[in-house]
């Protein structure tokens, strides 16, 4: 190759190439990054820091003291129970729905997809009100439920139903595009090799979608623990009985118990941060696997 003879010629040659003059583009790039970082800092990081600083305002003792309160403990327990019921159920539902949508052609398929998206489109308060309307004392099934001494609204079943409704799309939404993209070939290969439905699912399908599934479950869990609006409507805010963590935070705050409120809030935030860290780890290992 007959290259440029000396350094000057070389740099002249380089600067004549398209895309060489990157100085302005570098400035623009850093400017944009800075703007978005400042924006994120002001809107996200600062409030998060504020939560922790207010929670720790009166020292660690007061901070941990807040958790000794039996109502706070009840709220934490309720939140965990709700998540423990809702997340597995929605996972199961999500896998089933995604499987149906990705693998079969049937009438009403697009309707089902729209239906899955519905909870994302409806305001959480409305979601809660639906259940009050259905199962509340003056609701459609209210009288019947009262006759049989079953309480749904203002009790654990109502909270679980409302949370399920709200967190219903997360797993399915995560899996549908993934399954559609992966196609059916490996499953079909397994079937021609003699595998049945369950074996094909556990040995072939599940390993392929596991990272997408974990991601969906994490998002579903985060929302299940943090849901406020829908739960607030159906729970009736009975302190120590039907308050989940987000509801309890509001009660404490309204009572000017700032340390207590922010301590519980910090726990919820911590949960979100941990979730995000797990999510990042999952994404990384998911990419590495591919």
């Amino acid at each position: 190759m007959a290259g440029p003879a000396n350094h000057t010629e070389l740099s002249a040659e380089l600067s004549s190439r398209p895309g060489h003059n990157t100085w302005t583009s570098t400035v623009v790039r850093w400017l944009l990054i800075t703007v978005s970082l400042v924006f994120l800092g002001a809107l996200l990081a600062a409030p998060l820091a504020a939560v922790f600083s207010v929670a720790l305002e009166k020292g660690w003792e007061a901070y941990f003291g807040a958790f000794a309160d039996p109502d706070t403990r009840a709220a934490i327990r309720l939140t965990l129970i709700t998540a423990a019921v809702v997340v597995p159920l929605n996972t199961l539902f999500g896998i089933t729905a995604a499987w149906c949508i990705a693998k079969f052609e049937f009438k009403g398929k697009s309707f089902l997809i729209t239906l899955i998206d519905l909870p994302l489109a409806v305001s959480p308060v409305v979601s809660g009100l639906i259940y009050v309307l259905l199962f509340g004392l003056n609701g459609w099934f209210g009288a019947w439920l009262q006759d049989h001494d079953i309480s749904i609204v203002y009790a654990l079943p109502g909270i679980i139903l409302a949370t399920m409704f709200v967190t219903f799309p997360y797993v399915a939404r995560e899996l549908i595009p993934l399954m559609q993209q992966l196609g059916n070939d490996e499953e079909e290969a397994a079937i021609t090799l003699g595998a049945g439905g369950w074996l094909t699912f556990f040995r072939v399908t599940l390993p392929r979608i596991r990272w997408g599934l974990v991601y969906g479950v994490i998002l579903c869990n985060a929302r299940a623990m943090g849901e406020f609006g829908a739960v607030s409507v159906v729970s009736g805010n009975i302190r120590g009985l039907t308050t989940t963590m987000p509801l309890h935070i509001e009660i404490l705050y309204n009572e000017y118990n700032f340390v207590g409120a922010f301590a519980v809030a910090s726990m919820l935030s911590l949960l979100a941060v941990v979730t995000l860290i797990i999510k990042t780890l999952v994404e990384r290992s998911g990419y590495r696997r591919r």
Partner: peptide, 19 residues
């Protein structure tokens, strides 16, 4: 059913179990 037919099928894009 396909699983009981006892045929061997090779796909265009291999369809190997990647994991």
């Amino acid at each position: 059913r396909a699983r009981d037919r006892g045929v061997g099928l090779v796909f265009q894009n291999y369809a190997l179990f990647r994991h």
